[in-house]
Simulated assay, not measured.
Amino acid sequence: MKKFIALAVALLAAAAFAQEAQTNLPRVKLMAGMHVIDAQVAATDDQRMTGLMFRKEMPQHEGMLFVFEYPSQQCFWMKNTLLPLSVAFVADDGTIVNIDEMKPQTLDSHCSVKPVRYVLEMNQGWFSKKGIKAGAKLEGPPFK
């Protein structure tokens, strides 16, 4: 019985932890033209799976850069993500391949139109407000 209770407590603790926003990831400064982005870097499977889930707010100059081991078609959805987001799929050299708008808490799939290693999520409308479109280049350490 004690083992069962300990297991139940551990599972409840894991479930509670899983519903917390991750805010302490490493950060990198990116440039989109004259605009500076303070991006959290999600580079592990767990970090990428959690992404911006459960986050209730994000400053306008911040985002999350998802880094994958090798280029492939990347697809994202918004399960448990409370913020409306814009997503840019980015090639190895920093060129934005395509941008999409994502609605909160949906399972709609948003995919890169060709293989990429990087995906940048920002608050919804950030790219369009800054006049940044597919073909624009991001600059920063990951793209060197």
Rank of each mutant, 00 (worst) to 15 (best):
M1N: 08
A6L: 15
L7A: 15
V9C: 09
A10Y: 07
A10F: 11
A10W: 10
A10V: 09
L11A: 09
L12S: 11
A13K: 03
A13W: 10
A15Q: 07
A16R: 10
F17C: 12
E20I: 15
A21Y: 04
Q22Y: 12
T23N: 12
T23Y: 13
N24I: 04
N24F: 10
N24P: 10
L25V: 10
L25D: 11
L25S: 10
P26S: 04
R27I: 08
R27T: 03
K29H: 12
K29S: 15
A32G: 12
G33N: 09
M34R: 14
M34N: 13
H35R: 11
V36H: 11
I37T: 00
I37Q: 00
D38S: 07
A39W: 01
A39C: 03
Q40K: 04
T44V: 07
D45A: 03
R48P: 01
T50V: 12
L52P: 01
M53P: 01
M53H: 00
R55C: 02
R55M: 02
M58T: 05
M58Q: 01
M58G: 02
P59L: 04
Q60L: 14
Q60I: 15
Q60T: 15
H61Y: 15
G63Q: 12
G63C: 10
G63W: 13
G63V: 13
L65E: 02
F66S: 06
V67T: 06
Y70G: 13
Y70H: 15
P71V: 06
S72D: 15
Q74T: 05
Q74N: 13
Q74Y: 06
C75S: 14
C75I: 09
F76E: 04
W77Q: 02
K79T: 14
K79F: 05
N80D: 12
L83D: 04
L83W: 00
L83N: 00
P84T: 07
L85K: 00
A88G: 04
V90M: 11
V90H: 05
V90T: 04
D92Y: 11
D92I: 04
D92L: 07
D93T: 02
D93L: 00
G94R: 01
T95K: 08
I96A: 00
I96F: 03
I96L: 00
V97N: 01
M102L: 06
M102C: 05
K103T: 14
P104A: 04
Q105K: 10
Q105Y: 07
T106L: 08
S109I: 11
H110Y: 13
C111S: 13
C111N: 08
S112I: 11
P115R: 08
P115T: 08
V116T: 06
V119T: 01
M122L: 05
N123Q: 05
Q124I: 13
Q124A: 11
G125C: 00
K129H: 07
K129P: 03
K133A: 13
G135N: 01
G135M: 00
A136D: 13
L138S: 03
E139G: 12
E139L: 11
G140E: 02
P141W: 10
P142D: 05
F143P: 05
F143V: 12
F143E: 02
